[in-house]
Write a protein that binds this DNA or RNA. Structure first.
Lengths: 152, 152
DNA sequence: TCCTTTGCAGATAACGGTTATCAAGAAATA
DNA sequence: TATTTCTTGATAACCGTTATCTGCAAAGGA
């Protein structure tokens, strides 16, 4: 079952996050736990505002600052991937916290994470032609998702 | 001679920009002309502030707003490529105003534009695996440029 | 040539997501 | 229990960009 697989992966991601937080002796407050769960469980690359709204359903007094600070913590631990956009509409990926290509719908903003084979070759080609030592990348492909192609 | 080739390319780019501006019946003010020249002549992917400082050497009363408005005009004409970054350090490419891969030095911020062969294949692979209709992309590779590798 | 219209330049206020600051509270440590 | 350290929540500050407005200058028509 696909949903079972996903559930297992999410649980595994949460455990990974939790052990990293504990290993570095950061405190595991209820607010942090809630934010970690949201990030581990979401496939939708949520915004800070999305996360903030979700946390508030469980902890209504949570501040936006807490969300920002928890995300900063996870970035430091390399447990979340930040997809920053110039217009400020940043998104977060707690499931695959390493650089990978994205397909981004220019209309509904849905983001997909396909497995792509030839990224390493491309990275190597960049290294050869520029002399740069490539350590990470950001690969975004923009267009219309299948749903938005149908309804114009 | 490499410099001659580059000079010719820059001149050709400037002419291209000028005719686009004229075709659409936008006025060619001295400030606009200066900004177009800067963009056509620069290989360094300047920031708005860079452009602003350069224009002011010729027209000291130029306003930042004029730089922003001229860039907005060129974006509308697809005659400049905006490389927006989430931290606000945006850069502009007046020489190659179409999507292409960049190598970006994380230390000195130097940007290179190598010719890469396999971008179309990658785009096609994205299309196949996501169902998105890819219309443009943004491909950034980050690392240390040759100069910054030498001096630690 | 004069006049009207339109567009542009310059100055500055407003905007908005993020970061910094700080007081109050809670958890760890002694 | 006392003390230290960390975290939360609220809000001010930040800063590149955008919006607004006034005055000016070029284009086009009588």
């Amino acid at each position: 079952m696909k949903n079972q697989e996903r559930s297992l992966r999410h649980e595994s991601r949460l455990n990974q996050m939790l052990s990293r937080v504990r290993d570095r002796h950061f405190r595991l407050t209820p607010q942090r736990m809630a934010i970690l769960q949201i990030l581990a469980n979401s496939e939708e690359h949520p915004t800070v505002e999305d996360i903030y709204q979700q946390v508030k359903t469980r902890f209504p007094t949570t501040s936006l600052a807490t969300v920002y600070k928890t995300i900063a913590l996870l970035k430091e631990l390399d447990e979340v991937l930040e997809l920053g956009f110039p217009d400020g509409s940043n998104r977060y990926d707690g499931n695959r916290p390493y650089p990978h290509p994205h397909a981004i719908c220019t209309k509904c903003k849905k983001i997909m994470d396909p497995e792509i084979s030839s990224v390493d070759e491309l990275s190597e080609e960049m290294r050869q032609k520029t002399g740069y030592t490539i350590s990470f990348h950001r690969l975004d492909f923009f267009g219309l998702c299948p749903e938005c192609q149908d309804k114009p």
